[in-house]
Design a protein around this nucleic acid. Structure first.
Lengths: 159, 159
DNA sequence: GGGTATTTGATACAAAGTATCATTAAGCGG
DNA sequence: CCGCTTAATGATACTTTGTATCAAATACCC
């Protein structure tokens, strides 16, 4: 079987896939074709995709993908920290800062769908503090801020 | 038709329903039997319920409830700010601070399901600031912190 | 109590996510 | 490169969550 499917030679994508390989190796986990494909798809989409949108994009290359298999790959990639789920839009996005294991926040434009991943120290500290104050040992923090991005506010009228 | 179904005379519940009535009146919106029932159910559950759990609790009293009607009531109550949706658990909970129109955060215990609603100034300020820094005019903020509450950490072993 | 706009009921459907178990393949050791 | 073993996938069916549509009912104003 040919080795390079149609891997658009985006350097960012290459780097991300290499990183994925190293992560898997380091943790003794298997890097399968589908896991690679899911991450690639999310990266080249350049936006958040629902699991079923993702499935559609995988189908042309891999006709045997199913919802279950896509969700399994997504779960795997989320456990590695290279993919995040956006709870408020029920969609998935490739992580932009996979090097740092910090907590992230998402800003979502309700007009254009753009998602910006942030890593704000102030928010991280404040949430940790709140958890402590209320006696919670936190292990997951969903911070998703929705609004209208600068571009969308400028260009279109109020609509 | 009898006026008092089985309204357990919890003072908190009474107050909440009165507040709902005032809110509706003030906004010229209709307060229907189902909307009252949905809020009552959520309040007396004392925890977050999925839309379908809620439906089951309504059915004995109101056999004609359907998913659509429950979601419609929930949407209405959320627009008034007296109910919130927990995105990370796909469930709904009655608001504890409906007087103040501030942004709230939720702490969710993954062991016992307890949900604490907080209103942390520090987090509110930090998220607003982040939005400004990145050029977003925010209109919705989902902050859901999941972990293990004090009680659950103390009582059960690590499990 | 009557009129009217809003809400609900009924039905059907779409979208999102999971369980199970037989089959396949990733990655190791030789 | 080859087989071995374990982990992952494929296939299928199903559960949960959420919506569209339109006729019938009802909350609220007068």
């Amino acid at each position: 079987m040919a080795k390079s499917h149609k891997t658009l030679r985006t350097p960012g994508l290459e780097r991300a896939l290499d990183r994925l390989e190293h992560l898997c190796r380091a943790r003794g986990q298997r890097l399968t074709r589908q896991r690679r494909a899911v991450l690639s798809s999310l990266l080249s989409a350049g936006r958040a995709l629902s699991a079923y949108e993702l499935l559609e994009r995988l189908r042309p290359e891999d006709a045997k993908s199913t919802p279950a298999s896509v969700y399994r790959s997504l779960d795997f990639l989320m456990a590695l920290g290279v993919v995040h789920r956006l709870e408020s839009t029920r969609s998935f996005i490739a992580c932009e800062h996979p090097e740092t294991p910090h907590w992230v926040q998402f800003l979502i434009c309700r007009r254009c769908g753009q998602v910006v991943e942030a890593e704000d120290e102030r928010i991280a500290a404040a949430t940790e503090r709140l958890g402590q104050r209320l006696g919670f040992a936190l292990d997951q923090r969903v911070v998703e801020l929705t609004g209208v991005c600068e571009g969308c506010r400028g260009s279109a009228a109020r609509h």
